[in-house]
């Protein structure tokens, strides 16, 4: 059974994915034509014709994300030269920013306890975290725009977790350049021990969760504020900007903001508090912040989804 069939079956009586009741959604769902990539809803769905039950479970969702990832990548590879150019372009972009720091630390070897290796680690962590988040869930950077234009209908008609479905349905190809940059720079320039390497990868995943959670919350404001794409983009840019500067340069009140409102402090503390010298209390805080942000973003998205109004659009997904 194809995804289109499932969508039609599930939405015919007005039941929406994940049991969402969406106020303001028009009775007639928007017409969708999907071409090219047909992403299965998970292994249990391949037996066609059975009455459907919303698929649950980690394996099912892992398979779902994996299939979307393959489809997204295949789509990018249709324009191979452009794709490779973008990936290398992003690596170059990151390299230029890192070069600024290398020039800075060539002139000032230590600033507030931060050294050259720390800032290399910081850039590697940020690149890895950002890259993992946006190469897997690239559509979250368009979430506000999707909400404002009323383009969520397509996702609401599927028996899948709406946020996960929206997030995975597009990748940012340049984010793969960030992932490659983060890994190459860390392993080549920092020359870590095995423990440091493990902590680095784990921290990169937790940083990705923070990027994901914060971006989703920022873009979910569109449910309430309407055309807030610019605000959402600027909030996400703020997180990225603060995360790429050493925590040591910020003082009291700013630090409070960086560990609450804009959780960049959890990311830009990683080089000193996790990789250089492991602080278990900080690491537990980092993990808790990552889990809390992802959970909160899901809850906030679901709660605000009630305010969504359909654009009643006819869309063609290619």
């Amino acid at each position: 059974m194809s995804t289109e069939d499932r969508g039609t079956q599930d939405c015919r009586d007005g039941t929406l994915a994940d049991g969402q009741t969406v106020r303001g959604l028009h009775a007639i769902p928007s017409v969708q034509v999907q071409c090219g990539t047909d992403v299965p809803n998970g292994p249990e769905e391949r037996g066609a014709g059975r009455p459907s039950r919303p698929p649950r479970g980690f394996r099912s969702y892992a398979s779902f994300v994996y299939e979307y990832m393959k489809a997204n990548l295949a789509m990018q590879m249709e324009y191979r030269a452009t794709f490779i150019g973008r990936v290398f372009g992003m690596m170059l972009n990151d390299a230029m920013w890192l070069s600024f720091w290398l020039l800075y630390f060539a002139r000032f070897p230590v600033v507030r306890g931060w050294e050259r290796a720390d800032v290399i680690t910081l850039w590697a962590i940020c690149a890895l975290g950002f890259g993992l988040c946006f190469s897997l869930f690239g559509n979250i950077s368009r979430l506000a725009s999707i909400v404002v234009r009323g383009e969520l209908d397509f996702y609401l008609t599927y028996p899948r977790h709406v946020l996960l479905h929206v997030a995975t349905s597009r990748m940012d190809p340049t984010a793969l350049g960030d992932v490659a940059f983060g890994l190459v720079v860390f392993f080549v320039l920092v020359k870590p021990t095995v423990t440091q390497a493990l902590l680095f990868v784990l921290s990169g995943v937790l940083a990705a969760c923070i990027f994901f959670g914060f971006t989703v919350v920022a873009h979910s404001l569109a449910f309430v504020l309407g055309s807030s794409e610019l605000l959402s983009e600027q909030a996400t840019s703020m997180l990225i900007h603060f995360a790429t500067y050493p925590l040591g340069i910020f003082d009291g009140p700013t630090k409070v903001v960086l560990f609450t409102l804009i959780p960049a402090g959890f990311i830009n503390s990683i080089p000193v508090s996790v990789v250089r010298g492991f602080d278990p209390v900080f690491f537990a805080g980092l993990a808790a912040a990552a889990v809390l942000l992802v959970t909160a973003s899901d809850r906030i998205f679901k709660a605000l989804l009630r305010k969504y109004e359909s654009g009643n659009l006819i869309q063609v997904r290619m």
Binding site: S237, H241, Y245, T254
Partner: peptide
């Protein structure tokens, strides 16, 4: 967003 960029520069160079 430029205000954020400049704020961070102020912090960096003050430090």
């Amino acid at each position: 967003f430029l205000a954020v960029v400049m704020f961070v520069f102020v912090k960096l160079w003050s430090a």
